[in-house]
């Protein structure tokens, strides 16, 4: 079991963003996490990555408790995420963004950096080469010297994925990677996500683009008003009456069929 969410609840003052949600992810799987706006999907990511602490419940990663750790410790353990509202390092170049992603897999401190020791140079070269390779994977190699903020929207989303991959995650959390992408880009995104899975990385995907979700995911968990209302394979989810009701209730801005 890669990740086990155990009875997680989260309260924001009077709002219950998540209530007693449990599910788990097995190795090599692409698990979809869907639900109408405000269902609690991003909150779940924030629980997993310790951006916020759950009100109750716990989370384990490869059978090890991770609730209570700091965000950076969780990344070091092997969970990395992207953000719904893109959070790149805007004034860094594309390649610097990706190299920064390697932070927790490298060691050089102040003295090694200042004295440019052999091991430091070696390390810098390694993460530079790795960053180039990752940029190739997300098709941004040509833009490597561009500043993060000067990329087009879809490119920024891909850069965020490359940056996350640089931290060598075992589990990758993607928060609406297709948001703002055109049809062509979405097709490429689908290819990219399956390619990442084939690299041996387990994926938890939040997405509103239903065709993409149905095509990409092995299994889907559906949240509505903070509760898990369904879990299963894409076909079963598509025809689940609870799910259809939940989505119709939101005036159909997400078309499940």
């Amino acid at each position: 079991m890669v990740l086990k969410i155990n009875n997680i609840s989260k309260q924001f003052g009077g709002i219950t963003a998540l209530s007693n949600v449990s599910f788990s992810i097995t190795e090599g799987e692409i698990l979809g996490l869907i639900g109408p706006n405000g269902a609690g999907k991003t909150t779940m990511f924030n629980m997993i990555t310790s951006v916020l602490a759950p009100t109750s419940g716990d989370i384990s990663f490869y059978d090890e408790q991770i609730s209570g750790l700091k965000s950076h410790q969780i990344t070091t353990k092997g969970i990395c995420r992207t953000f719904q509202n893109i959070r790149l390092f805007p004034e860094m170049t594309v390649i610097e963004n990706v190299m920064t992603g390697s932070h927790c897999r490298t060691k050089s401190g102040v003295w090694k950096s200042v004295f440019r020791t052999k091991s430091q140079k070696q390390e810098e070269k390694e993460i530079y080469d790795k960053a180039k390779q990752l940029l190739e994977t997300v098709n941004l190699l040509k833009e490597r010297e561009t500043l993060g903020k000067n990329l087009a929207y879809g490119q920024q989303r891909r850069l965020e994925i490359a940056r996350a991959l640089a931290s060598e995650p075992k589990l990758l959390l993607l928060d609406e990677p297709a948001a703002g992408m055109n049809e062509q880009e979405t097709v490429e995104l689908h290819r990219l996500i399956t390619k990442i899975r084939d690299m041996g990385i387990t994926i938890l995907l939040i997405e509103h683009d239903m065709p993409l979700v149905m095509k990409t995911c092995d299994r889907i968990v559906v949240l509505n008003f903070g509760k898990k209302i369904a879990e299963g394979e894409p076909k079963a989810i598509q025809s689940n009456p609870e799910v259809i009701k939940a989505y119709l209730g939101t005036e159909g801005d997400d078309d499940i069929a």
């Binding site: 990555t49 951006v51 700091k70 965000s71 950076h72 990344t75 070091t76 990395c80 995420r81 953000f83 959070r87 790149l88 390092f89 805007p90 004034e91 860094m92 610097e96 190299m99 920064t100 992603g101 932070h103 927790c104 897999r105 490298t106 050089s108 401190g109 102040v110 950096s113 390390e123 810098e124 940056r163 996350a164 931290s167």
Partner: peptide, 20 residues
């Protein structure tokens, strides 16, 4: 690596923490 960590924190603390 140290300088990049400083700039990352300067630009977006939460993203920096998420990058380990």
């Amino acid at each position: 690596r140290v300088g990049r960590a400083f700039s990352a924190i300067n630009m977006d603390e939460q993203a920096a923490a998420s990058m380990g």
